[in-house]
Design a protein around this nucleic acid. Structure first.
Length: 931
RNA sequence: AGGCGCGUAGCUCAGUGGUAGAGCACUACCUUGACACGGUAGGGGUCGGCGGUUCAAUCCCGCCCGCGCCUACCA
């Protein structure tokens, strides 16, 4: 804590340092209560629309950096378009997040010593809704803290009535069209959550150190055949052993049978060239059709029996004989032991394998045979592929297109039923009497075939089924609404690349299918936010950075406490201690936003650095102080911001208007290209380096002038540039810009809020002036050179020095004479403009520097150390000689002169002349010292 | 195994076929009436390696090394 951070300066209207905490909530409340976020539903509103459907966060979740990142990006696009006069709609909402939410509630129940089965389905779902009521909406409050300007009046939830109706409608329609079907096949089973999973919900853990276990099956009538397996317990489901048809080792066994050592079963030896690689292991493969993907296919080829050996909880069932009731991993050990005992074990070796794990529970997924609902994907994928191919939807960055196409072209049918209780019930009913299946929007009273009674399918739909409809279900679909008509297709979708398949691809398919048009025109895929080491944030690692802690501040103790609560390991706590010994200051939402925006969208990893956030907090403070300076000076005049460029004649004023022009244009094109990182760089540079470092400094002597017209012009320029810069920055830093903007003196009728002010326009707000910029370049070079002399000589800033600017160039002479006061003010010197040959005539000892064809001469009789001065000049000479040599080499190369573009050659020649001139001047200076 | 991406200053990252950039960190000096969450001036890089194309390569192409991710397979 700095000692006087909250102190106020008596002479200024603003506190010395900007404190975001109180400001941010205050302005957000004002915006929301004023209805500024609302999209227009006016039937006659002719403005173009700009729409984003928010990626709905988990309703019971809380904000993480990934959300913060996307939300900020979306908010910038929304605010930018709103300021540009679009009818903008940002639809907020939440997802019911089936498994995730159910697991959380089950865990809470477990703490009471109960399971969901103790409660029963109805009571359990009540508990989930209760939990949703408690924690739901928290995450939306957190989006508000970030400044998200969503149209909250249109907030949706994937399980609310309207969206549930959309889900039923989609299911029934697709079923009628033959795109949804029910089938019995091998699926991924999560024994912990006790539900089936889609392929995408299975993650593979690579290079796990496992064991390849060999054992022998006795052959009927004598002999044996040895097989290898990583899952010995599955042998209860073995219904064949396969060998390669051409493998001579096993030819004599073709057609024979094996004796299962544990259960009364004859196991046939089959030949299969597809399954068996004779070079692997023993060349003989046990076949378990009910529990392995390849074996399932093999079983179908050979019409093998499919024997399920697992209960839903992963324990072995009655098919495992005396092993019944054992957990799969316990069974594995015992099977091996028993085989040893029987003398059938044939050794084992270490083996690297890939384990399929449930994305949710982390448990090893078991393939089992089960009856489930599926979506036929190929017919849906085709139009979604075409839409990206022909550019109706653009993917940014473009390289993700390949990944999208690859997945879409190899797409597998999607298992959409889940054995959960929390989710959309499947709108299917089965006749108790005749088993007939009814799929309908509402429950049928009785079976349409036999009039028997019906019961509803007990399963629910995969969460992603409802989120796939999000871009249009939130707009009222399946009804034909004004909103659908106006806002579909939406404009941009911003999300993490990790859910490209889960969500984005499915929205594309659903959108094309139901709306006949793409759901969004652009897909913007952002990277994953990691800690500063580039490691994925995880609760166990303890490296999770909560956006709210960054915004509101947190002590190290608070960070450690939170990490501990989340189950962080000691190494994680050490990391926190080491990396953030001081905790976080309250950097504010603006600083966090600006930082998240500053990372290139091309990158797949956003290694969030707190130092960078701090730097952007400092940037906000810089802006704040620029405003303090401006407001303080404006008090003495009557200048008002008008949102129209003032007529400026003076050098400094014209220069800043010219730089403003560049800043506006760069920001504009950067946003249009979704390069918000470039926009932040441009704005940072403009505000700090150009506005503060140069213009504000140049304005100081102007305000001291007695020329009242000049002072008035400078007032007008200053207030205009400040007000425009605020508007330019507003989408990225909404809070501080509003806070300052409200205090800027403005002409009447400029509105109540910066967020509805027009976005700056280079033509209206600024004026490019290339000649002035060139002059300023000369002035800056001379100033920098003079300052360097001071700095290298350790001359105290308070000491005013004489500086001679020696040149024969009439333009420069004029410039230096005209801007003498500016140069003097920027360098604390007394400037005189002299002829170019002055150094030769100057007999006193002096320090020399060369800039822009001008020799700077600073007579410093008492302050000069000849040796040091000589070294300094020599170093400068060496540097220039090196550059000159490189240019000479190029120019003496006929290939370059003949074949390079003429302007490039001309540029090199020009630079050569400059260098030669500068070198001559430096050598003169050197000679003078040496003599 | 295939695909994609990455490798640039101590750190985090931009970038370009024509003299290598930013922020932070670092060094020195400075509390000057906007700002020490600051100012001024500095130091620091054979742009992962090797070849090729080119007048010219950090950038384009090929190979290699290292890292990350995705998809598939693994008895």
């Amino acid at each position: 804590m700095t000692d006087d951070s909250s102190a106020t300066d008596s002479s200024a209207t603003l506190p010395k340092a900007y404190d975001p905490r109180e400001t941010e909530t205050r302005w957000y409340r004002f915006w929301e209560q004023s209805g500024f976020f609302r999209a227009s539903a006016e039937p006659n509103d002719a403005r173009p629309t700009y729409t984003i459907a928010i990626p709905p966060p988990n309703v019971t979740g809380s904000l993480h950096m990934g959300h913060a990142c996307r939300t900020t990006f979306e908010d910038v696009l929304i605010r930018y378009h709103r300021m540009r006069g679009f009818n903008t709609l940002w639809i907020p909402g939440t997802d019911h997040a089936g498994i995730a939410t159910q697991v959380v509630v089950e865990r809470k129940l477990a703490r009471e010593g109960k399971t969901r089965h103790d409660l029963g389905r109805e009571k359990f779902i009540e508990r989930v809704w209760q939990w949703k009521a408690e924690s739901g909406g928290r995450i939306l409050e957190q989006l508000r803290v970030l400044g998200a300007s969503c149209d909250w009046s249109r907030e949706r939830f994937t399980m609310d009535e309207g969206l549930s109706r959309a889900v039923r409608h989609a299911f029934v329609t697709m079923h009628r069209e033959g795109l949804i079907y029910r089938d019995t096949r091998l699926v991924n089973w999560d024994v912990q959550s006790q539900t089936v999973l889609s392929d995408l919900e299975v993650e593979s853990e690579e290079n796990v150190q496992g064991e390849l276990f060999d054992f022998a099956y006795p052959v009927e009538g004598g002999g044996e055949i040895v097989v290898s397996t990583t899952r010995p317990e599955t042998m209860f489901g073995d219904t064949a052993v396969a060998v390669h048809p051409d493998d001579p080792r096993y030819t004599h066994l073709h057609g024979k049978f094996l004796v299962h050592p544990f259960v009364p079963r004859r196991v046939p030896i089959i030949t299969d060239a597809q399954l068996v690689d004779p070079k692997f292991g023993t060349g003989a493969v046990k076949v378990t059709p009910a529990h392995d993907w390849n074996d399932f296919a093999t079983g179908k080829r050979h019409k093998l029996e499919e024997i399920n050996i697992l209960e839903k909880d992963g324990k072995l069932n009655a098919n495992a004989g005396s092993f019944v009731g054992l957990d799969r991993f316990v069974a594995r050990k015992q099977v091996k032991a028993k085989l040893e005992e029987l003398g059938l074990a044939r050794g084992s070796k270490a083996h690297l394998l890939t384990l399929p794990r449930s994305q949710r529970s982390g448990t090893v997924v078991e393939p089992i045979i089960s009856t489930q609902w599926f979506v036929r994907m190929q017919p849906l994928a085709a139009p979604a592929i075409a839409a990206v191919e022909d550019g109706r939807t653009q993917i940014i960055p473009e390289h993700w297109k390949k990944t999208y196409f690859h997945w879409m072209r190899e797409i597998q049918d999607w298992c959409i039923s889940r054995q959960l209780w929390w989710g959309h019930p499947i709108p299917a009913w089965y006749c108790v009497a005749c088993q007939h299946t009814h799929v309908a929007l509402e429950a049928p009273a009785r079976c349409e075939k036999c009039s028997g009674s019906v019961t509803q399918d007990e399963d629910v739909l995969d969460t992603w089924f409802s989120s796939g409809l999000w871009p249009f279900s939130t707009l009222g679909w399946p009804d034909k609404t004004l909103e659908l008509d106006r806002f579909y297709p939406t404009s941009d979708l911003e999300t993490g690349y990790d859910i490209l398949f889960f969500w984005v691809a499915r929205m594309m398919m659903m959108g094309m299918h139901f709306m006949g048009d793409v759901p969004f025109k652009r897909i913007l895929l952002s990277g994953l936010v990691t800690d500063e080491r580039g490691e994925k944030m995880s609760k166990v690692k303890g490296n999770v950075i909560d956006p709210l802690d960054v915004i509101n501040g947190a002590t190290l103790e608070q960070l450690l406490e939170k990490a501990t609560q989340n189950g962080a390991k000691d190494s994680g706590l050490d990391y926190l201690r080491k990396t953030y010994p001081e905790g976080f200051a309250a950097y504010g939402a603006d600083a966090l936003r600006f930082t998240l925006l500053s990372y290139s969208p091309q990158t797949t990893k956003i290694a969030l650095s707190i130092k960078r956030i701090e730097g952007h907090r400092n940037f906000g403070n810089k802006l704040w102080n620029a405003a303090r300076y401006a407001l303080m000076n404006l008090e003495s005049g009557s200048a008002r911001a008008t949102q129209t460029r003032p007529a400026a004649a003076h050098f400094a004023n014209r220069w800043i208007l010219s730089r403003l022009h560049a800043a506006i244009e760069t920001t504009h094109s950067a946003i249009e290209e979704y390069r918000l990182d470039e926009a932040t760089t441009a704005l940072y540079h403009f505000v700090w380096r150009e506005l503060c470092d140069w213009y504000l400094e140049l304005s100081k002597p102007l305000f001291a002038s007695t020329d009242t017209a000049l002072v008035a012009e400078t007032h007008a320029t200053l207030v205009h540039v400040l007000e425009t810069a605020l508007r330019l920055l507003h989408p990225m830093m909404p809070f501080i810009t509003e806070e300052i903007w409200q205090r800027v003196p403005k002409a009447d009728g400029l509105g109540k809020t910066i967020m509805l002010a027009p976005y700056p326009d280079a033509t209206r707000d600024a004026l490019r002036d290339a000649a002035i910029e060139r002059e300023m370049g000369v002035l800056q070079a001379v100033v920098v050179a003079a300052r360097a002399i001071r700095s290298e000589r350790d001359i105290h800033p308070k000491l005013t020095l004489p500086v001679m600017l020696c040149t024969d160039d009439p333009g420069r002479t004029l410039l230096f004479e005209r801007e003498r006061t500016a140069i003097e003010s920027l360098t604390n010197s007394r400037v005189s403009v002299e002829p170019a040959n002055t150094p030769q005539q100057f007999s006193e000892q002096s320090v020399t520097a060369v800039a822009e064809g001008t020799t700077l001469l600073v007579p410093l009789k008492d302050l000069i150390d000849d040796g040091k001065e000589k070294d300094r000049i020599l170093r400068q000479i060496q540097k220039l000689e090196k550059e000159l040599a490189a240019i000479d080499k190029k120019l003496s190369n006929s290939g370059f002169v003949d074949r390079a573009p003429p302007d490039v050659v001309a540029k090199e020649r020009e630079r050569k002349t400059e260098l030669e001139q500068a070198l001559a001047q430096l050598r003169d200076a050197l000679k003078k010292i040496s003599s």
